[in-house]
Design a protein around this nucleic acid. Structure first.
Lengths: 263, 263
DNA sequence: GCTGCTGATATGTCCGGACAACTTTCAATG
DNA sequence: CATTGAAAGTTGTCCGGACATATCAGCAGC
């Protein structure tokens, strides 16, 4: 009944209309967000349960609904709560999530190939998936996919950067007819022509001996040490659109990534 | 004078009070944001110049200031504009930035070692930096650093995961005296005890032959193929706090990362 | 010419209210 | 018992207004 008995750590002394920075040095909605964050971190609200409703929080802190919504928006951006119309505010995490992020503007930054490198396609064929690549794509053994084989070159260099094998799902086969003369990476071609969007990319990096076809393409012996990248391009439903495999000779390639603390 | 003459692509037909979804299927502020985004991308507003003020946009779209602010907040989250109180809204980019992100809650996810792996320290010493590691740390040749040498084990396995060499800046030497008995990774120890925060991590992955000390620790021959990770932990000022180097035997390790399209 | 003040202007914060859209609950109905 | 439908509750959207605070241009004064 008496709402004053459950006030919470945020003092609002004068308060007649709407003056910023009432008590402390930071805005009211930020202080409310900090109070709620501290209470969630302290376990006063259990993860998985519901936060009090907006109107209850309005009463508790004695502020307008707009101010409460600004505070809840801050918690949402921290990943601590998730909100659903009609349902309420769910406490999603006991602490701010995603403290370190690697961000890139485009998928080209993922591959780290310079913009002026050239891709030479040596082969384009329909193939039945063998057991060794079935796990990598992933796809059922004996299912049919399009397979591209090629080499990537630096502009004025005699040495190739890497050998590649790209497996593309059959439903995109029609978009590959002139892939040899097209510009840019294969996934970009597929995304532009089919209209399907890449929702996620999974990249696996490992040290592997060169398979025969890659060794031949690179002019090295089969089994020579190499750095292998397998990139799966995945759509909204979670199924693989295409998988690219790249073998880099061991001596000539370093993959670099940078993570920054966010906030 | 006549504000109707400069209306922009967003139709607001009926409109008497504030009904959601007036014309199309999405809220008004989102449609306004999309309109402005398209205009910026089309070059109608130059990058580096100022967007019209909130009140001008209110007049143009014939909506309240609150709705305009919601739209500008969307553009801000996309990284296209940056706003400054008293100054105005600066157009920061011609297209949404950082479309793909890899996020992690802690740096332990970067290393991908399971939580229950154990780190056995075999050596702790002051060393003068030699030319071959000077570039990796990076540090001047002949400068003095602390060097930790060790092996990481899976709990009930006879085979080690990797051999490691960690170089720690001298100013943290005092925090390493009982590192052998301490829990958790070295960077975490340093961060907790020194109070200095890691602002950034740079990781380099390459295929390298095993150096002698690592080969001995892993029970393999020198020069055997391996996957090497070099991680630099960097403070706010941009200087390296510590650098960790890890050699994984080629057959037993795959580094996996996942990037999602955001928004 | 430089400094400092003043006023205009822009965004930030906060209040109030109203209706829309969605979810959940529960009672009535078949 | 299962299904439907109404009602209550909750968040989303949008309007109006007011004042606070930061920025900048211009002007007066030294």
């Amino acid at each position: 009944m008496d709402r004053d008995s459950m006030d919470g750590a945020v003092k609002v002394p004068s308060k007649e209309h709407g003056t910023a920075l009432d008590a402390a040095g930071s805005p009211l909605y930020q202080r409310i967000a900090q109070t709620l964050q501290a209470e969630i971190e302290a376990g006063m609200f259990a993860v998985g349960s519901m936060l009090p409703t907006e109107s209850e929080l309005c009463a508790r802190f004695d502020v307008s609904r707009h101010t409460i919504r600004d505070a809840l928006r801050v918690l949402g951006e921290l990943g601590m709560v998730s909100r659903r119309r009609g349902s309420g505010t769910l406490i999603a995490a006991g602490a701010p999530t995603t403290r370190y992020v690697q961000a890139m503007r485009s998928l080209e930054e993922l591959t780290q190939y310079a913009h002026d490198t050239q891709y030479e396609i040596q082969r384009l064929e329909r193939v039945a998936i063998t057991a060794d690549v079935a796990l990598l794509i992933p796809a059922p053994v004996d299912s049919t996919w399009m397979r591209l084989e090629g080499i990537r070159w630096r502009p004025h260099s005699a040495e190739p950067i890497c050998a590649t094998a790209v497996f593309v799902h059959l439903r995109f086969a029609e978009h590959l007819h002139d892939v040899a003369s097209a510009e840019g990476p294969v996934y970009d071609l597929i995304e532009r022509r089919s209209g399907e969007r890449i929702a996620e990319v999974v990249q696996e990096i490992s040290a592997e001996p060169l398979p025969r076809f890659a060794a031949r393409a690179l002019g090295l012996r089969t089994g020579a040490p190499s750095l292998r990248f397998v990139r799966r391009y995945i759509d909204d439903s979670g199924s693989t659109m295409l998988t690219s495999m790249n073998w880099h000779p061991a001596e000539h390639f370093v993959y670099r990534m940078r993570l920054k603390r966010d906030g």
